[in-house]
Design a protein around this nucleic acid. Structure first.
Lengths: 112, 112
DNA sequence: TTTTTATGACGCAAATATACGTCACAATAT
DNA sequence: ATATTGTGACGTATATTTGCGTCATAAAAA
C-alpha cells in the first residue's frame, strides 16, 4: 500500500513530479547534457563518459526512454540514443508552468 | 557503497539534481503551491489540505526545509511555514540554466 | 486541573532507486 | 572459426523514500 498516495494529487502535479523525478539524479542530467551536445550517440559510448558501469547507465537510459525524453533506435548492432525534442519541450513547458506558480505576490512578507 | 556515486559528478549537476529531487513528489509540489498562495501558514493546516497524515506531511516539510526552500519559524506553540523567496529564486536560476543547456542546436537531426 | 491540540522525535514496513554482475545473443573484428 | 564488442534481460545487495503510528511535551481551551 505504501507509495500509493501519489495518485491522490492533482494530475498536473503528478505529471510535473514525474519530470522532476527523471531529472533527480546527476547521471541522468549528465546523459541529457551529453546527448544535447552530441548529434547522435550510442549507449556504449555514454557509459565511457560516466563514472558508472554500463549496466547502470543503461538503467538510467531506460528511465529517460520510458518518459519519452530520449529515443533509442536500432542502427545495425548498435542503438542510437538521442533527445526527443518535442518531449523535452513539453517538459520545459510543464516545469515553467509550475515554477511560475511559485512566484510570490507583491508585498509578500514573512515573519521570520 | 551503493548510492555513493552521486559525488562523482559535476557539482553543478549535483546541485541541480538536489533541487529536482525536492520537486519529485506531488505532495511537495502541492505544499509549495499552497504556501505560494497563502501568506503564512502552519503545518497543521497543511496536513488538512493534503490526503496524507500529519506525520507524512511533516516529513515532506522537513525535506523542503533542509534544502532551504521553506522556513519554519516558531510563533508561540505553532510553527509558521513560508516560502524562502531568495532560495526559490536560486532554484529557478539553477533549473533554468540546466534546461537551457538542453536546447538543441539548429539543424539537429536524429535518424529515427 | 483536565482535556484537547499542535509539534517534534523515533521507529517500522513496504515500495523504489542505485549500482553491479552475469548470461545469452547478435554483429563486428581478427 | 574465434574473439571481441554492444545489447537486453535477469537477479542481487544496499540505500533511500513513502507513509504511518506512537510517544513525549508544551501550549491553549474546557
Amino acid at each position: 500500500m505504501t507509495y500509493a498516495k501519489v495518485e491522490l494529487f492533482d494530475e498536473k502535479l503528478q505529471e510535473a513530479a514525474l519530470f522532476f523525478k527523471a531529472l533527480s539524479h546527476p547521471a541522468r542530467l549528465a546523459i541529457l547534457n551529453y546527448l544535447a551536445n552530441s548529434k547522435v550517440c550510442i549507449s556504449g559510448d555514454i557509459s565511457n563518459e560516466l563514472p558508472l558501469s554500463r549496466t547502470t547507465v543503461n538503467q538510467h537510459l531506460k528511465e529517460l526512454k520510458e518518459l519519452g525524453l530520449i529515443r533509442g533506435t536500432i542502427d545495425g548492432s548498435k542503438t542510437n540514443y538521442c533527445l526527443n525534442k518535442s518531449r523535452i519541450d513539453e517538459m520545459q513547458f510543464v516545469i515553467d508552468q509550475f515554477l511560475k506558480g511559485l512566484s510570490l505576490p507583491e508585498g509578500f512578507s514573512c515573519k521570520s
